[in-house]
C-alpha cells in the first residue's frame, strides 16, 4: 500500500482497484459499478490490518500479532530503563539515520551487539577510554539491560577531536553507557551524549538490516545538538570510531557459524544448568535467558541435565 520509508499521509490508495483507506485503516473509497461485488459487500469488513500499538516514553511500539501480550507484560519491568536511554523522558528530536546491511544472521547480531564493548573495541583500549565497571541484567523474556560506567580521560589521547569523549548533556557517568536490548533483536543505546535506537530486521538467513536512528533532546540548544550530531556520526554506527569493527566481526562470526559444531556460551557461565538474571559487564551468558525464552516459544525440547 505504501512504499515511502517515512512521511505523513491521511489517505492510502491501492493502485489496482482504487480502494482508498483513511489513516485509521478504514476503507473509505471503493469505486464500483453494480455487479462488481457481491450484494452483501460491506466496506466495514475490509479495513487495513490494524496493529496493536503502545507508547513507551515516546517510543511507538507496534505489532501485527494478535498473540502479542500487553505491553507491560512484554517489557517485563523495563520501562524505567527505556526512559534512561531515551534522555530521561523520551522527548526526543530526530537527528538522522545510519543504515547498515550486515552480512550475518540475526542471531549472530543479537548475540553479539552489546556485551562485547570492553572486549572488542581496540579504540576503547588504545585510547584508554575503558576505565569503568559495569553490569548486565536479563529478564525472563530475554530482554537485556547493559550499564557501563565511563571514566573519561583528560584528553582524547592521540586524537585531536575531544568531542568524541565529551559528556555535555549532564547525568551520571557511572551510568554513562546504557543499553536496552529487546529480545529478539532491536535495541537502544545511550553512550555519552549519543542516543540511538537500533531497529533491526532480518532480511534472510544471511542478512540483517539495522537502522541506527539517532536523537537529540527537544530542550537541547543548537550547540548541544551540533555536538550530538558530531559524536553520533563519528563514534557509533557502521563507520564510527568505536563501532566500525562490529559489522566486520558479525560477518566473521557468521562465516564461522557455517562450520560444524554448536555455539556455546562460556564467559560468565558458572553452572551450566542454571540461567541467572544478573551478569558481569562482558559476560556472553547474558544471551542465555533470551535463548531459553526462544526455546519455550518455539517448543524445542531441552536436553536433560547430566
Amino acid at each position: 500500500m505504501e512504499t515511502a520509508p517515512r512521511g505523513n499521509k491521511l489517505r492510502f490508495g491501492c493502485p489496482y482497484h482504487r480502494w482508498t483507506f483513511d489513516s485509521t485503516g478504514r476503507l473509505v473509497g471503493c469505486p464500483n459499478k453494480p455487479g462488481d461485488y457481491p450484494d452483501d459487500f460491506d466496506r466495514s469488513n475490509y479495513p487495513l490490518a490494524r496493529p496493536t500499538m503502545a507508547l513507551v516514553h515516546g517510543l511507538v511500539m507496534v505489532t501485527f500479532s494478535e498473540q502479542a501480550p500487553p505491553i507491560d507484560v512484554y517489557l517485563d519491568g523495563l520501562h524505567d530503563s527505556i526512559a534512561e536511554v531515551l534522555a530521561g523522558d523520551g522527548r526526543l528530536r530526530l537527528l538522522g539515520y545510519q543504515k547498515v546491511l550486515l552480512k550475518a544472521n540475526w542471531k549472530t547480531y543479537a548475540d553479539n551487539d552489546t556485551y562485547h564493548a570492553g572486549l572488542l573495541h581496540t579504540a576503547f583500549r588504545m585510547l584508554n577510554w575503558q576505565g569503568g565497571k559495569g553490569y548486565q541484567e536479563a529478564n525472563a523474556r530475554g530482554h537485556r539491560l547493559y550499564v557501563g560506567e565511563l571514566s573519561l580521560p583528560e584528553s582524547a589521547g592521540r586524537l585531536h577531536d575531544p568531542s568524541l569523549i565529551e559528556h555535555r548533556s549532564g547525568g551520571d557517568l557511572s551510568r554513562g553507557s546504557v543499553s536496552v536490548r529487546f529480545f529478539p533483536i532491536s535495541g537502544m543505546t545511550r553512550h555519552l551524549d549519543s542516543i540511538s535506537i537500533r531497529f533491526a530486521n532480518p532480511l534472510s538467513v544471511d542478512e540483517t538490516e539495522v537502522h541506527y536512528t539517532y536523537f537529540a533532546h527537544v530542550d537541547d540548544d543548537e550547540k548541544l545538538i551540533k555536538h550530538r550530531v558530531r559524536q553520533a556520526s563519528n563514534l557509533l554506527g557502521p563507520c564510527g570510531l568505536v563501532s566500525m569493527e562490529d559489522a566486520a566481526v558479525f560477518h566473521r562470526l557468521h562465516s564461522g557459524s557455517q562450520t560444524p559444531g554448536d555455539a556455546v556460551f562460556q564467559m560468565g557461565v558458572t553452572d551450566e544448568y542454571v540461567i541467572p538474571s544478573e551478569f558481569g559487564q562482558s559476560d556472553e551468558s547474558s544471551n542465555l535467558p533470551g535463548w531459553e525464552y526462544y526455546r519455550k516459544v518455539m517448543g524445542y525440547e531441552k536436553a536433560p541435565a547430566g
Binding site: 545510519q98 543504515k99 547498515v100 546491511l101 550486515l102 563507520c239 566500525m244 562490529d246 559489522a247
Partner: peptide, 9 residues
C-alpha cells in the same frame, strides 16, 4: 544508497 553494506573503514 541509504545503506552501507557490512561496514565502511
Amino acid at each position: 544508497s541509504s545503506m552501507v553494506e557490512r561496514f565502511m573503514a
